[in-house]
Amino acid sequence: MDDVSLSLEAGEVLCLVGESGSGKTTTGKIVAGLLKPTSGSVRFRGQDIWQMDKAQFKAYRRAVQIVHQDPYASLNPIHTVFTILAAPLQRHGMVRSRAEAVRRVVELLETVDLTPPESFLFKYPHQLSGGQRQRVSIARALTVNPELIVADEATSMVDVSIRVSLLNTLQRLRDELGVGFLFITHDLAIAKYFAWHGRIAVMYLGRVVEFSPTPALINDPQHPYTRALLAAIPEPDPDLTRRKGKLQLRSLDIPSLLHIPPGCSFHPRCPLFEAGLCDVQRPDLVPIDEKRLVACHVVARERTGTIAKHMASPVGISSNPMIGADRGEYGKESS
């Protein structure tokens, strides 16, 4: 992961999209305070989390919770659902008695649509389906009233028919509890659905190459990598998918992270490649209009050159990113 800067408003949904090895999980762990960046900082309400004192850092770790991809691995198999959920409540002094813990756990199970709660309280993880386990993981993240949930491929391991209801539950949490999400996924369809009112950051080989409001990113992608991805994804519609224009890449091979190409790391595969520019100079993530950031020399030159024309015919950004009360920002930089 290299030189990533992102910011997230309270209650905002930000999707981090990228393929395996793009650094999206690492970014998520850094945001959650589970990994320390080699350089750069993560700021929570303006304060660098790695400069915080113990109490502040504990509060930060409580404010930001992570839900992992694999609900089979992230829940302790020898504990019941009740124990799994009551432990953080007790540890963080959120409940005073066992009766109170039961009340709160029941409430949490209802929040994540595990109803009736009584039938789940004393079950062990192996007695639950993948979707139900993932709901328990989400309930566990909610025990400490977080402000931000980092959901790392949280819906990838469940079947399609169940995935949608899990997404709907997450969306309800966002709307009703005002929880912000850093939603990490390789699946642009899921990102589109979950973050329609938010923003998507596309990562490639450890760097953010495009960062835009979701409708604009999906329907008017700018970076050649984003364009290639969107053109490559098969659609669940035989006519649409067979007539979709495919983008020819110059190479099929994904460079190794140990030998990241110089200049723009996408240049060996990029159809817009310009010798002497793209293979030499690293493009910064720069604004191409009020809402969109793109890290591409060619696109930046063309867009800023013809900006007046583009302003005259707006290109599909319209829905405002969902922005909560301006309580601060989570930002991160490393280089």
Partner: peptide
Amino acid sequence: AVPPIVGEL
């Protein structure tokens, strides 16, 4: 359960 990528929501 599986919507198209491009286009509307």
